[in-house]
Write a protein that binds this DNA or RNA. Structure first.
Length: 512
RNA sequence: GCCCCCAUCGUCUAGAGGCCUAGGACACGAGCUUUUCAAGCUUGGAACACGAGUUCGAAUCUCGUUGGGGGCACCA
């Protein structure tokens, strides 16, 4: 039998499935493999905006089982910063954003550093010139500046006047052979408009007449961003270009270049900007922007990643706390918003506390020891058991690991001073006498636990015929120097009987 | 100046015509708990920029206005 109805139904279902996939999923796995890239220029440290862009690329790649490429865009010689590449890489790795291909990790599409690809750009620029889609321009910076000033004076958009666009071939040849400096500019169509689709913005259209004849190759032989990005994204088979919104305006030029080369255009997704509190593009001067700064302040990578992920994206339900794995599972470009997002540190702090809270005592112990080692307590040895007790007493009260020391220094060193407002409120004329009694009572205890301290204190309060608060508050002050903190008896048990008694005596001495 | 993009509580956001007297989170206020402080729980205040239109019905669609942002380099 030639016709098998079961088979026919199967085919029908598969093709329906494919169609459904195609219209509903921007990352159609039935077509090209997913390849995305993060392409920073090594001009300094990784910016939190850059981290967000890298993260979204990474999440998208991992979610779809694609490849995440790191490419270094160092085509501006004047802005090169020594060590920036290594710094960028180590910061990304720290954040848990691991690239599959890039410097030191060849995936067959290298080199991944643009300054090592000059020959490629030259070849492509030449191709465009030969096809009449680009041209040599000999205009000096001085002349360009002059033109620009005139245009600004006439309230026109500053734009290249296309002075060299139609130079005779013979003249071009002569001037080049004479060694005159030149750049290569792309020929923008005179009329018409350019339209492209963006996954987050929808359809964007721009009139060609407002597009500048962009420089593609600079006179120093380096390409501009526009040439390099198009050539590399194509050669590296990038399927989705996910980058910041600041690139939206130049995307038509990139789109045109793809057409000039006859290449398939990748999908674009322009991410909303990260903003300062005053809604301008996130920048230095209005707080920290380097990921390193936040790291140095003690933020957990989990918190930073979680926070930055939520700036412009959300899962559509009410969950807020995410691990990297959960983000990978949930992320989709369709749920990326269009409006810029203010970088608000308060929520980051809350997230940090949440992620810290979710860590095990052992994990916190490791971080605390590391912090202690680099602090002024470095040389002092605190046993793991001791630190574990401090952790359990303080873990609900800290935002950062460093808070274990900064919010409760009395676990590591006796109080050097006593909070004056607490002294004023709690230290009464009779207090010294009463605490002295209490210290004597404590001294008689053997190997006391919390409950023993409590019983002893109750006993003294009773015999003195005073409220427990008359002892509790001054005792807290004597032992910690402050009026807030974990349960008093927890503190006593942790620092121990000898230390407790010693601190009471010191306080009586100092506060009389 | 020109072009592009955007617009829900102070901030991050849900919302894809009726489920919205607009939900959640951070922050802020109150209460519970705790003879401290946190955490936690309960709870309060707080927003659809404006104006037209489409529709029986608009936060949601259209147009305009206003506001904000980004871009307009031999920088990325």
């Amino acid at each position: 039998m030639l016709f098998n109805p079961d088979f026919a139904i199967f085919v029908q279902q598969v093709s329906d499935l494919q169609v459904a996939f195609f219209v509903s999923d921007v990352a159609n796995p039935m077509s090209k493999p997913i390849r995305v890239r993060f392409a920073p220029s090594p001009t300094g440290f990784l910016h939190v905006g850059g981290l967000r862009t890298a993260l979204y690329n990474y999440l998208f790649a991992r979610h779809h089982g694609g490849t995440f490429v790191l490419r270094i865009e160092d085509t501006d010689q004047t802005r090169k910063v020594e060590g920036a590449v290594e710094n960028l890489i180590s910061t990304l790795e720290w954040a848990g954003i691991h690239y599959d291909e890039g410097p030191h990790r060849d995936g067959g599409y290298g080199p991944y550093i643009q300054s090592q690809r000059l020959e490629i750009y030259h070849r492509h620029a030449k191709q465009l010139i030969e096809q009449g889609k680009a041209y040599y321009c000999f205009c000096t910076p001085e002349r360009l500046e002059e033109v620009r000033q005139k245009q600004i004076a006439m309230k026109l958009a500053p734009m290249y006047d296309r002075h060299c666009r139609e130079l005779p071939a013979e003249e071009i040849k002569q001037r080049r052979e004479a060694g005159e400096r030149s750049v290569v500019r792309m020929k923008i169509p005179i009329g018409g408009e350019t339209t492209f689709d963006d996954i987050v913005r929808g359809r964007v259209t721009i009139a060609n007449k407002i597009l500048d004849d962009q420089v593609l190759l600079k006179s120093d032989g380096f390409p501009t961003y526009h040439l390099a990005v198009v050539v590399d994204d194509h050669l590296m088979e990038i399927s989705h270009v996910i980058r910041g919104e600041e690139w939206l305006s130049s995307t038509p030029k990139h789109f045109l270049l793809y057409q000039y080369f006859g290449w398939e255009v990748p999908q674009f997704a322009h991410l909303p900007l990260l903003l300062n509190p005053d809604k301008t593009k996130l920048s230095k001067r209005q707080g920290d922007v380097a990921v390193e700064d936040y790291r140095a302040k003690g933020y957990l990578k989990e918190a930073i990643v979680n926070f930055v992920a939520l700036l412009g994206w959300n899962p559509g339900d009410e969950r807020e706390i995410f691990t990297m794995e959960e983000l990978i599972n949930e992320f989709s470009l369709e749920r990326v918003g269009k409006a810029g997002a203010v970088f608000n540190v308060e929520k980051l702090n809350w997230l940090n506390a949440q992620h810290l809270k979710r860590k095990s005592d052992a994990e916190i112990l490791a971080m605390l020891k590391e912090h202690l080692a680099s602090s002024s307590f470095g040389e002092r040895e605190f046993g793991d058991d001791y630190l574990l007790k401090v952790i359990s007493a303080m873990r609900e009260r800290v935002i950062f690991v460093k808070d274990f020391v900064e919010k409760s220094p009395y676990f590591f060193v006796p109080p050097e001073q006593y909070d004056p407002t607490v002294v004023k409120k709690r230290w009464k004329p009779d207090t010294a006498q009463q605490l002295k009694k209490l210290a004597e009572e404590f001294s008689r205890l053997t190997n006391p636990q919390k409950s023993d301290y409590e019983a002893a204190l109750n006993h003294v309060a009773e015999s003195l015929n005073i409220g427990r608060g008359e002892l509790i508050h001054p005792l807290r002050l004597a032992v910690s120097g402050m009026g807030t903190g974990p349960g008093l008896y927890d503190i006593l048990e942790i620092i121990g009987k000898e230390e407790t008694v010693r601190r009471i005596e010191t306080a009586i001495e100092k506060l009389k």
